[in-house]
């Protein structure tokens, strides 16, 4: 039998993998992909609750999350291009101009 918990745990696993990805990778692009992964995990959550509660609202919110993700990807990748143009690197460890 499938319960709500199945989906939520699945979502938690994917979310944690995303967090791990953001924390351990040095390539900014891959870090960003991990971010998308986390957003997807959240989407699974929303869809599961939408189904469980018989409510459309959850699915509506998935669309908004996607819109934000798309916007974020566009701006973020533009930033990387600009950054790479100036620094010749997208290695997170080498970008520390803001060090105190």
């Amino acid at each position: 039998m499938l319960t709500l918990a199945h989906y939520l745990v699945l979502s938690a696993i994917i979310f944690s993998i995303g967090v791990a990805g953001v924390l351990i990778r040095r390539n900014l692009i891959v870090m960003f992909m991990s971010l998308e992964l986390m957003l997807n995990a959240v989407n699974i959550n929303l869809a599961a609750f939408s189904s469980y509660l018989q409510q459309m609202t959850g699915q509506i919110f998935i669309v908004f999350v996607m819109a934000v993700a798309a916007a974020e990807a566009a701006v973020g990748l533009a930033l990387f291009i600009s950054l790479f143009r100036n620094k010749q690197t997208i290695n997170a460890d080498e970008i520390n101009t803001m060090r105190g």
Partner: peptide, 18 residues
Amino acid sequence: VIRYVQTGRIQTYIVTMV
């Protein structure tokens, strides 16, 4: 004293946040 916390590395900040 506190300036050493500001490493300028994004992942340090994210770890702290998580």
